[in-house]
Amino acid sequence: MYGWIWRHLPGNAWVKALISLVLVLAVVFVLFQYVFPWAEPLLPFNDVTVDEGMAAAR
């Protein structure tokens, strides 16, 4: 998988390393900005209130 990506990046080893770094940062950004905020309510740390409604909550 990673070998396949590496082989398909253009340029010499340095350029490939630079592009890889940018790709990794982009993935981390997307995770922190969109994916984790979506996944976080599925975990129990949000339930701090007393409420009948919370029975339906995660």
């Binding site: 129990p44 740390f45 949000n46 701090v48 209130t49 007393v50 995660r58």
Partner: peptide, 15 residues
Amino acid sequence: LTTCEPEWGHSHRLI
């Protein structure tokens, strides 16, 4: 004041 109990869980509330 209310918060969750246990510390990392959600089974109870602390008042």
